[in-house]
Design a protein around this nucleic acid. Structure first.
Length: 579
RNA sequence: CGGGGUGUAGCGCAGCUGGUAGCGCACCUGUUUUGGGAACAGGGGGUCGGAGGUUCGAGCCCUCUCACCCCGACCA
């Protein structure tokens, strides 16, 4: 590619609204441009990187036996009504009507369409297992799109769907995909972790998120540095150790942190102390001696869950352990109905079922809300003052918690960008959409499904986030916009331009993705641009070095540079090949 | 959806107490340059997000509206 004929849209300054490093760099490098909130143009440089990522994904999908299909971006409402998601999906689903007033939506994901597709074509167990995939745009009307293409509304996703006879076979499909994902992200040169994630309401199944490690990641994950263990903070299990409450050690700690004897409940005025922090500061009580009472609205009605003051509730784990389909924090008016006050909720005389995190087992004489505005209670004890229906692991893990892999290791929190998700669906969609095949015994059976997504644009952004320096982007060879760039420093110099052009043609013949910056720009501009867009190898052809029969080659990532005889073509290729 | 903020040239910004719109970069022409975002000279580009209002006069004041950005939506 000749830059004189190319659309190179580099910028010295990034627009004010670009937040993260990758977002700024992608705009400055002329990879992307925003056209509306969460909707982007990919310019040539961005598209080249995008295509390389896409091709790696496609190759690995094909290698793992998945077959590519294309499904529509606009999908009819009846498929969604059939699966029940037309009503379940909220405003994220962008709905539209055609000229005849028929309802459609822009596909946010394609379980419905693919289930329908496979159901129509696959009739027999003999045709299973089958994995199909698509690489296409999707649309989710996000509440808050941000960070450029990292969290866009329209985005391209690779989505694979596996169809199997049964769970055992589905597990094999799953692990094939899992392995393919590892190869994909390795080939893209990313530092990542496969993280245990929420498997949702489908009991017994499992799910992994592929997280690229980066500080700007939106997800918090818990990782063990000493073993492979990694899990989303929402789902990571807490290894609970029961303490001996009668021990001397515990004796010292009891009593609301104020050395109060463990006796009667004491009601105490705590004006305007709504948060745990307020209460802790006001009473001078350690936050770990306070119990938060959280009222949840669930498909089984209102219930309360108790959590130690410094911990956070994991609704995901709570729902799972309670076997609930639905649970969220109760609204103010719901809380008002049960004779308590938001900010001062407590378990004593609370007229609903009370559950608690395991940690409560290790607590006595704690502080709780008084169910009355501006009052809290001291020296509260479960069993004595109120009853707990059940204990469970329902808090988020924190730094220093025990690693579920090995008791001697501890977990540490870090941030990650979710670039991929592999998920066992089971028969959720094949049941709701009545998608069946005929099994060995001639009986109709629901497909056992799995789904596997990768955000292509997000992989590009994550790669930029991980690979850059003060001069710009430095992508790995496998996904860089060009592999080699030739920079003639003076295009008016006959010898320089002739040599550079010849070299360009020769390297092209070797099947490298090569470009030549033959614009009438000064050398400095060309150097800056090459660094900004992140070309791994630059060959500088200038009059001075050419006089000495030499050219210069630079490695963007290591900053190594060598001078080499202008006729030593194989030496030049060796450098590019990392020899 | 709640709170906050910003809209002035392609990008980054300035514009006072209301008086007819400016800077840097980018762009165009010419000359000189050409190894780290060149120099000089000249030039083009704005219904100041939109609508309405106040005023002799509005980028600036008022009302409405649109767009975009940030924070929050796990508070007990």
């Amino acid at each position: 590619m000749r830059f004189s004929e190319y659309l190179l849209a580099t910028l010295k300054e990034a627009p004010k609204d670009a937040e993260t490093l990758s977002h700024k760099l992608m705009i400055r490098a002329g990879m992307i441009r925003k056209i509306a909130a969460g909707i982007y143009n990919f310019l040539p440089i961005g598209l080249k990187v995008f295509r390389k990522v896409e091709n790696i994904i496609r190759e690995e999908m094909n290698n793992s036996g998945a077959v590519e299909v294309m499904m529509p971006f606009v999908t009819p409402s009846d498929l969604w009504i059939k699966s029940g998601r037309w009503d379940l999906y909220g405003k994220e689903l962008l709905r539209l009507k055609d000229r005849a007033d028929r309802e459609f939506c822009l596909g946010p994901t394609h379980e419905e369409v693919v289930t329908d597709l496979v159901d129509r074509e696959v009739k027999s167990y003999r045709n299973l297992p089958l994995t199909v995939y698509q690489i296409q745009p999707k649309f989710r009307d996000e509440i808050r799109p941000r960070f450029g293409v990292m969290r866009a509304r329209e985005f391209v996703m690779k989505d694979a769907y596996s169809f199997d006879l049964n769970e055992e076979s589905a597990d094999k499909s799953y692990s094939k995909m899992f392995d393919a994902y590892k190869r994909i992200f390795e080939r893209c040169g990313l530092r990542f972790r496969a993280v245990e994630a929420d498997s949702g309401n489908i009991g017994g199944s499992f799910s992994h998120e592929f997280m690229v490690l980066a500080e700007t990641g939106e997800d918090v994950i818990m990782v063990c540095d000493d073993c492979d263990y990694a899990a989303n903070i929402e789902t990571a299990p807490v290894i609970f150790r029961q303490k001996d409450l009668n021990s001397k050690q515990h004796e010292k700690n009891r009593g609301a942190g104020k050395d109060m004897p463990e006796n009667k409940i004491e009601k105490i005025s705590t004006p305007s102390c709504i948060s745990v922090k307020d209460v802790s500061n006001f009473l001078g009580v350690n936050i770990t001696k306070i119990v938060k009472t959280m009222v949840l609205s669930t498909n089984e009605g209102l219930e309360a869950v108790l959590i130690r003051g410094d911990h956070e509730l994991s609704l995901t784990k709570y729902k799972k352990h309670r076997g609930l389909d639905f649970a969220e924090l109760a609204m103010d008016d719901e809380i008002a109905k049960i004779n308590t006050v938001k900010g001062f909720t407590g378990p004593v005389n609370l007229g609903i079922k009370i559950f608690a995190d395991n940690e409560l087992k290790n607590m006595t004489s704690y502080v709780t809300g008084g169910n009355e505005k501006d009052f809290h209670l001291l020296n509260v004890n479960h069993d004595k003052d109120f009853n707990i229906e059940d204990f469970m692991d329902c808090r988020q893990t924190v730094d220093g918690d025990e690693c579920p892999g090995y008791p001697e290791y501890t977990l540490k929190s870090t941030r990650g960008i979710e670039v991929g998700h592999v998920f066992k669906l089971g028969t959720k969609y094949s049941e709701s959409m009545n998608a069946v095949f005929t099994d060995r015994d001639g009986k109709d059976t629901n497909f056992y499904m799995g789904c596997y997504g990768i955000g292509v644009g997000r992989v590009v952004a994550a790669a930029v986030e991980q690979h850059n320096d003060k001069n710009g982007i430095k992508l790995p060879f496998s996904i860089s916009p060009f592999e080699v760039l030739i920079i003639p420093t003076d295009i008016k110099n006959e010898k320089v331009i002739t040599y550079a052009n010849d070299l360009y043609e020769k390297i092209k013949l070797e099947s490298y993705d090569v470009a030549i910056d033959d614009r009438a720009e000064s050398a400095g501009v060309k150097f800056k641009d090459s660094e900004l867009i992140g070309v791994p190898y630059c060959i500088v052809v200038g009059p001075k070095s050419l006089e000495k029969n030499m050219v210069e080659i630079k490695d963007r990532r290591t900053s190594n540079k060598i001078e080499i005889s202008k006729d030593d073509f194989s030496g030049l290729l060796d450098f590019i090949n990392g020899k």
